[in-house]
């Protein structure tokens, strides 16, 4: 089982990113689980979503305390190692929305892979709004190979309203192309 923690801020689409990833995994014949941590959510406040993938049905329903990897939708949160990297496994991976280099993150040392992309820039170009969820999924697909771009595109078409299909698929692909991967 693969356990991933998604960090974002209210309004960036962290919950939707888990729905898209979970559906994409389901389309590929795997099992997915997206567990949003419900607190008092407000636009701009940090939110966490727990994402699991497995070949068999997932029955565990706890939060994820020691993730195999993290996905961070917000560039400022990405710099807060004590928040986003807490419990992160040795040799894990991070997919970050950032303009910085991978080495600049204090928690880089314990990871095997860091993928970086300017997801905010991609989102502003394609969606004209800083909603970074589809862009960061493009980076995640490239960095880990766990989900195919084609199944993520199918998930976008099935979950989002029609007028959002084209710009989000564009964001997904643009981020996929622009993502830099650094093996640590």
């Amino acid at each position: 089982m693969m356990e991933i923690r998604i960090h974002g801020r209210g309004g960036q689409g962290a919950v939707t990113s888990s729905k898209l990833a979970g559906l994409a995994a389901s389309i590929e014949g795997k099992y997915g689980q997206g567990l949003p941590f419900y607190g008092f959510e407000r636009r701009g406040a940090p939110v966490e979503v727990y994402l699991r993938f497995d070949e068999k049905p997932i029955l565990i329903s706890s939060r994820i305390y020691e993730p195999d990897g993290i996905i961070v939708l917000d560039p400022i949160l990405a710099e807060l190692g004590n928040v986003v990297a807490r419990g992160l496994k040795e040799g894990g991976f991070a997919v970050l929305n950032t303009l910085k280099d991978p080495e600049e993150f204090e928690y880089a040392g314990k990871l095997s892979k860091i993928a970086t992309v300017d997801a905010t820039g991609v989102a502003l170009k394609t969606l004209r709004a800083p909603i970074t969820n589809t862009a960061i999924l493009g980076a995640f697909a490239k960095a880990t190979g766990m989900l195919k771009l084609s199944s993520l595109e199918e998930a976008i078409k099935r979950i989002l309203r029609e007028r959002f299909h084209k710009p989000n698929i564009e964001a997904l692909r643009m981020a996929y192309d622009e993502t830099q991967i650094k093996e640590m």
Binding site: G22, A25, S26, G32, Q33, G34, L35, P36, S61
Partner: peptide, 12 residues
Amino acid sequence: YDGYVTSHTGAT
């Protein structure tokens, strides 16, 4: 079924 844990969690 359990509120949030099952009601609001996405699953295959």
